[in-house]
Nucleic acid binder design. Structure first.
Lengths: 242, 242, 242, 242
DNA sequence: CATGAATGAGCCTTCATTCAT
DNA sequence: TATGAATGAAGGCTCATTCAT
């Protein structure tokens, strides 16, 4: 049946609110702590209403996962369009990923939880594939830029490292670092400014590959600052306060 | 109180078997899927018997975690005693960590699950601290070698990177990469030999920092081969078959 | 949140039924024999439904206890308002307490079980205090009448007996006697009409203290008959059939 | 098979210790809190050994009950042999009962718990009857003295009170009072010296029945003091410290 | 005899999901 | 369409009792 535009709008708003609440509960209490009852209670709607939007708890969680990767993909896609030399575009991706983790820490946490628990298995095939496809596109964006770098003559990979392997390296550094940060025990381990540390480590890695322009040949921090302001001004409000 | 040696031995063997089964179930079905009933069923023992060894489900999981980190720490400690130049000792650590993830993939998976889920919070304070203390020692081993490198004049860190931050970078690369590998969707993404890729990326990172001897100045692959054979011969049997 | 009046009524009725069933099971099988499963089965509702009314088994039992003492306090308070000389008002209390034990034998049994078992310790502090406060008020009613008797010149207590000690004596006789009756092995011991015996013993006790009017100066049985009919007509139906 | 005298003695000693431990646990933690495991642990014997003495948990508890009433009967029988006028012999019983509750509070508590819980039902028929028979003998002792009083011309019961009913009255006062004392909330209710209060209330009751010699005609406190010293000197050590 | 590991029925409690109103 | 009472399978844990050593 057709809904009036107003109804339709309200419907979507409610769906968004459900996911919001669910994401917070998932972060705060883990997979076990996410309870349909509690979502309903916090929304001040009834459980029945939640079930009108999502057919099961699994469904809620998979939608959360979908939101997450779409969010990240969106940011990465935006960054990849930066007009500049390939290594600068990698820097743009760095900006995007850092912003994603900082500004949407809860999204990232969701990804991590879902990755760890064997929820994927239970999820519908279709959803499953959607997630993998999305990851593929993320990798594609990065390795595309690596190839651009090679094509532009800025970078020559040693024979023992394929573009995918380099991409995998940067992804690992970024994902692993963010995981450790988000999980939280970092303070006690004496690592200052971990986000900046991730970026600096990646820069050193690219320097090691002799990807031009090298980190001391250009002012990357300034470039990234500019990228953040030009391309992601809408997300900057509180991201600076670590 | 006093058990005969035979009883004592049987007791320990059974405890080991419980943890084995638990680890497998944890891997296969995640935290939620680990059920005391099922452990008992698979062991062909009764629930009561399991509870004679571990006072709760949480207790089982924390013991699993303890095993994991002790295992890793043991391997890292062994590697750190390699007699060689600092960067070679880092390579030895690489060997250790790769062996850990490959040979004890299920241990690593446990670590990952525990890190993601909010199990830590529920765990007894004492266990908690033991885990953190262990992580601290792991980091200490690595950053100690970094400082040795600096002291030996082999490495000069740029001002924007502290030894802890570099350690964090290598840890991130290693942990993140292993996570992605173990979680499994890598085949479809076109990344070949991911373990080697992690090591190569780390080498490039250290080259980028100009840590002597650079990767093309020495035959690191051969060094690592030798380290593996000399220091970890007991673990090599099936580690080569990926 | 807001329930319709009908729903509200049904809810309360069901709650009452749960307590009814619980009280019966508690009487029949003791504290140990009270099983949530069985309550549900006898009600022909599911366990979950019981838990929507009471958060735990303990909660059910404490509510039962609360009902009991409120019931008794209510009857005693009613009796204490009898217009007559203090010793007649004591007689009115006797009527009330007998009615309580006879008409609400199951309530009394609950009190006894709760007093004996170490349930009180487990109960929430708040509930705890409520019970004690209620007992205090019961004692207060009685010792108040004792003091009235003294003030009216009807009674002079010997120096070795305070009003509280006399109250304690009557309470003991009444509670002890009722306990023995309710527990059941009395028939075989040759004690006829035990309820009347309790009252007569109390009368002799008060005669021993020379509390005017003495038992042979007034027709207390007739007075009590009248009190029962005037003040507790609503509870008389089956109380006569012992 | 025959046991050597030494073995036999050790066996009995162990049985006594089991019951001791069991009684303490029953008092401290109630029926639920009495666990065969814990008895064994505290005894530093194994569970199997306990089961060589008692065939079940029920058995342990019933033996505890048997000990209790035998203890009380023993004390009452001793007291009933006091050479004096009937009312003095009642006073001697008062001494006995008070001593029983004070000196063997844990025994009394056991009786109370067993009376409240529906353990009796589960107990073997034989045990059951033993308990009732014992109670009968206790009552018999008291009502025998009442009849002696009547026969001696010291007491004339009103027509509405049989010797058994009077006995029931004193039993109620004593049992009820002790119950309330042992359960513990008395301090807050302002009743001083509750044991003495029980005795004084009984004295007033007997005065009310005009049982000679009346309480003010003889120095009962002194008589009771003497009885305690002459007949129960073996139990007096700490009974005076309330 | 003593031991204590093994058993397993049984209990309390939780929570995703359904459906009558 | 919204509600929330009802459901009941499932899971963690306990503890009396047995029996091989």
């Amino acid at each position: 049946m057709n809904r009036s535009p107003r109804k339709e709008r309200e419907w979507k708003e409610r769906e968004a609110r459900i996911l919001e609440v669910a994401r917070r509960l998932l972060m705060e209490h883990g997979y076990l702590g996410l309870k349909m009852d509690q979502i309903a209670a916090e929304m001040e709607y009834s459980k029945g209403t939640i079930y009108q939007h999502f057919s099961s708890k699994e469904d809620v969680i998979m939608e959360l996962a979908a939101q997450t990767i779409e969010k990240r993909l969106e940011l990465m896609a935006r960054a990849s369009e930066y007009k500049g030399r390939p290594r600068e575009r990698i820097a743009a991706l760095g900006v995007a990923v850092e912003l994603f983790v900082r500004r949407f820490a809860d999204y990232f946490r969701v990804e991590q939880i879902i990755r760890a628990d064997s929820i994927r298995e239970k999820a519908a095939q279709e959803r499953q594939e959607k997630l993998t496809a999305c990851e593929l596109r993320c990798m594609g964006i990065v390795s595309g830029i690596v190839r651009d770098g090679i094509a532009a003559g800025d970078l020559t990979l040693p024979e023992f490292l394929t573009p995918e392997q380099l991409t995998f390296g940067m992804w690992s550094l970024s994902f692993g670092g963010s995981s450790i940060i988000v999980t939280g025990q970092l303070g006690e381990l004496g690592v200052e400014e971990p986000f900046q540390a991730i970026i600096n480590n990646i820069q050193m890695l690219l320097d090691g590959l002799n990807w031009k322009p090298l980190s001391y040949e250009t002012d990357y921090p300034q470039t990234m600052e500019r990228i953040a302001e030009e391309m992601f001004s809408d997300l900057l409000d509180d991201a600076r306060t670590p």
